[in-house]
């Protein structure tokens, strides 16, 4: 057989069928998350800038040291520098973290102006934007959860099965070679990534966010305790943000690699161009 029948590379001239891949509830909530996570990230960095130090435990150590991350600007002998300190290890991050340019001038701020909403230092507005989109995220996540339980999307498409785990090594190899099978079902890595974000990272974001609210603490004192204290919850909130940004970058790279127009069509209209079924389904196909 010719190599162009290999998985992920449909034969030229033969189009696979259009399959209905994404239900309306999935598509709507996907875009609600895309918009709200964008604003949550940039307003969150604004809020972080108000006190750019992360700690473990219930409180922030001023007379003792329990900090795990700090993004500061320091006056060294050679002028002002941006310094990022992670678990005691120090890095010079001038230009990006700690000290960056705003309107052509040095600005002593943890995250630079282009990465925050609003661009200037404005904690009050950052909080307004953050909590507005936090509600959007919570509402859309709940709607999605209900919709996905009702239409079977969650169990059928997202929860990894034993066969997915067994097929994981081959799927990793396929991803490395940028070989994608285009079908209705998600591949094992997709399932793990989507389920990980929707069922682990985003709920963790909400839980750690609530653990920082003194009013929510009074309602659920077990929550900050479970998460290791309010300041640990704040640190986990930040780490989950880093993981979500990592997911976003891989998500974008995979879409570009797998065919951006087809992928975009499926998350806008629901319809997805699958590989020609007879060829890719053949078990005797050489690999």
């Amino acid at each position: 057989m010719k190599s162009d029948t290999a998985e992920g590379r449909p034969a030229r001239g033969i189009k696979g069928p259009l399959v209905y891949r994404q239900a309306l509830s999935t598509r709507l909530t996907h875009w609600a998350w895309a918009i709200s996570l964008f604003f949550l990230l940039l307003s969150g960095l604004q809020i972080f800038n108000a006190h750019p130090v992360l700690y473990v435990g219930d409180q922030s150590g001023f007379a003792f040291d329990n900090r795990v991350l700090a993004i500061l600007d320091e006056d060294t002998g050679a002028g002002r520098r941006g310094v990022t300190e992670i678990l005691g290890a120090r890095f010079d991050t001038t230009g990006l973290l700690g000290l960056s340019q705003r309107d052509g001038r040095d600005a002593a701020r943890a995250f630079p102006a282009w990465a925050t909403i609003p661009s200037g230092q404005d904690l009050a507005t950052g909080r307004v934007v953050h909590f507005f989109f936090a509600w959007v995220l919570v509402a859309s996540l709940l709607l999605w959860l209900i919709g996905s339980l009702l239409n079977g999307h969650l169990v059928r498409d997202l929860l990894p099965r034993r066969a997915d785990l067994a097929g994981l090594p081959r799927d990793v190899a396929n991803h490395i070679r940028l070989r994608f099978h285009h079908g209705r079902a998600y591949n094992p890595l997709q399932k793990l990534a989507y389920a990980g974000v929707l069922l682990v990272l985003l709920p963790l974001m909400i839980a750690t966010g609530l653990a920082m609210s003194p009013s929510a603490n009074a309602l659920m004192p077990w929550l900050p305790d479970l998460l290791g204290g309010r300041q640990t919850a704040r640190t986990i909130h930040f780490l989950a943000m880093v993981l979500l940004v990592g997911f976003f970058m891989i998500h974008m790279a995979m879409i570009l690699a797998a065919g951006p127009l087809n992928e975009l069509r499926s998350i806008v209209t629901g319809w997805y161009r699958a590989d020609p079924p007879a060829r890719t389904a053949s078990p005797t196909e050489p690999r």
């Binding site: 102006a113 282009w114 661009s119 507005f132």
Partner: peptide
């Protein structure tokens, strides 16, 4: 992200969001 919309504390949009 660098836009002025959120830099204006009196903007109507901000007021709507503050409703949260």
């Amino acid at each position: 992200p660098g836009c002025d919309v959120f830099d204006a504390p009196d903007s109507r949009l901000r007021e709507v969001m503050a409703g949260a």
